[in-house]
Structure formats: C-alpha cells, structure tokens
C-alpha cells in the first residue's frame, strides 16, 4: 500500500458556500504530482459535483481520494436519505433538489450524469434511509 496516496476531506453539510473546497484542494495536490491538466479537470468536476450533491441532499459527508500511478479513485460517502431509484437519478435533468437550491443555480439534474461522463468508472451503492457511497475512478 506504500505506493498509494490518500486524501481525506470532511464535507460540511451546513455550509453551502464552502462546498467545493475539497475539489479545489485536490486540484492543487494533483498539480503537485504532475498529473495532466485534462485529467485534473475531470477529477475536479466529478468531485465538485459529488460534493455539491452531498451538501444538497445528505447534509454533508466524507470524501476520500486515492492516487496511484495509474488511476485516481474518489469515494464519496454520506449518511443521507439514500437514492430510491438509481437508474432514474442517473437521467439527465432528473432532480429532487428543492426549489431554493435550484434558484441558486444548482439541482439541474446534471450532477450524477456529469460525474459519470467525466470519469472512467462509477459505481453507486445506496440504501434508502441509510446513505449513499459513490466510487469513481479516473485512469491516468
């Protein structure tokens, strides 16, 4: 395991304005590792969307990023309401975000589809009333 780097972030559910801090931090770390700009951008977008989702729907959560020489893995874990129908949630434009969130420009139903689009692998494990864990991988 010595050749893996891990980063842990607590995503604060109360503070909407600070959402996105973990993705800004991970961008900096990936630049220091010399990762290609396009890869950094994909990781950053996927992570940002995930962070926002955790703030909107789950009252926050945790983000763990693992970097190896061949891939970057992002695990987003929350103890929120869970996703009842994952297939439906993956459809572009489908959103359960409240109106107040939409008026801020979020909740357009593009979060999960974008996360899938910008990563090479994505898996959602979710149980209603228990929480959601999303695992994403971007190959280097």
């Amino acid at each position: 395991m010595s050749d893996l780097l891990t980063f842990h972030f607590d995503v604060d559910g109360d503070d909407f304005t600070s959402a996105g801090q973990a993705s800004v931090q991970i961008k900096k770390n990936l630049r220091q590792l010399g990762i290609a700009p396009d890869t950094i951008r994909r990781v950053s977008i996927a992570m940002y969307e995930g962070e926002i989702n955790m703030v909107i729907h789950a009252g926050g959560g945790e983000a763990d990023v693992t970097v190896s020489e061949t891939y970057i893995e992002i695990v987003l874990k929350d103890q929120g309401p869970g996703i009842a129908n994952i297939e439906q949630a993956m459809q572009e434009g489908f959103s359960t975000a409240p109106d107040a969130i939409r008026s801020l420009g979020f909740g357009a139903g593009m979060g999960l589809p974008n996360m899938k689009r910008y990563t090479d692998y994505m898996n959602i494990e979710s149980e209603v009333g228990v929480g959601t864990t999303i695992t994403m991988r971007v190959n280097i």
Binding site: D3, Q32, G34, E69
Partner: peptide, 16 residues
Amino acid sequence: PISRLSASMSESMRMM
C-alpha cells in the same frame, strides 16, 4: 507546471 514536486510521478507521490 511550477508546483510539480518532481519530474517523476512516483517520486512526487513519495514526497507528497
């Protein structure tokens, strides 16, 4: 890429 720790990825990872 000024913030890069080392030219080698594995060395950068070790340093980080």
